[in-house]
Design a protein around this nucleic acid. Structure first.
Lengths: 159, 159
DNA sequence: CCTGGATTGTTTTGTTATATAACAATATAG
DNA sequence: CTATATTGTTATATAACAAAACAATCCAGG
């Protein structure tokens, strides 16, 4: 049963020791991520929402009142780059910055009423996207396994 | 046993229906890909090689003589963007364009002798990187499972 | 208190990846 | 032979991301 492709080399013209693209975790990870994002982007085109904006709204919705830097940090976004992102969400009337009490420097982030409604719709749209991925993966268990494995790469606790 | 985080909601302040970042396949996929690429980049810093360059060299090494567009296409790189990439590899003396026989438009890509030696070293370096990932994942089986799941997302045949 | 160092949000700038359009040279189909 | 397609290339635009600097504000030690 076809092993890892290089082990059973008949000595023809195939160079030894050189990895095959299909067995490179980083490469396949990148391709898969690109594919998933592509599906995400197409799915969310009708409500004009990018992945980064989605994640920001979801975080604010789940935990309102957090400071800009806190949200940005959780998402791995540099606070400098977060500014324009937040500007856009504010201009669209979905989220807002409120002067945090206690610290006059920081802003606490919240959804607007319209933002709350938008997040509901957004979540529904997301479910159709995620469901499509589950089908590709071959079921919810496969998805759970994938999330687990990705979590291990990220160094998350083994639950 | 701790279900998918939203199902067992005690009704406190946690909004319902809004996905948690940790359960979003696309998000976790992106974070994991970023992490793996980070490790790759750091690992390959000493031989000054980027992921894209790595993949090009590996493809040429495995199947020399292919045309530019063929290589680019396999990697999902637009042929316009491939030019600079190939220029760089050629300037470093690792790969070269030869005028393909038969078609005076196309170039067939090959490694230089130095390029061949470089690919050997590169493959060795890669193994240390990949091995680090395997450890994080918890063993070779986990890696195989991950590659399988990513393959499913990409629509590859179920082996 | 008050002063130096840290933090927050912001602007500016640069780099990299990626997409599109156009072009000349060449190939190919009818 | 001519119309159309392909190949490599250039030029250009956009988006993601990082780094540096800055003003306003906070905070800790003297």
């Amino acid at each position: 049963m076809g092993k890892s492709s290089d082990e059973n080399n008949t000595g023809s013209g195939v160079p030894a020791g050189i990895p095959e693209m299909a067995e490179i975790v980083g490469y396949k990870l990148r391709r898969a991520q690109l594919f998933v994002f592509q599906d995400f982007i197409e799915t969310f085109e009708k409500i004009k929402l990018r992945p980064a904006e989605f994640s920001v709204l979801a975080l604010i919705a789940r935990t309102p009142g957090q400071k800009q830097t806190e949200i940005a940090e959780q998402l791995g976004i540099k606070r400098a780059n977060f500014v324009a992102l937040m500007d856009s969400l504010e201009r669209r009337g979905l989220a807002e910055r409120r002067k945090a009490e206690g610290d006059k420097r920081s802003h606490s982030l919240h959804l607007t009423p319209e933002g709350t409604r938008f997040v509901d719709k957004m979540s529904t749209v997301w479910r159709t996207h995620e469901e499509r991925l589950v089908e590709r993966l071959g079921g919810p268990e496969a998805r759970a396994t994938l999330l687990d494995l990705l979590g291990r790469l990220l160094g998350e606790k083994p639950a």
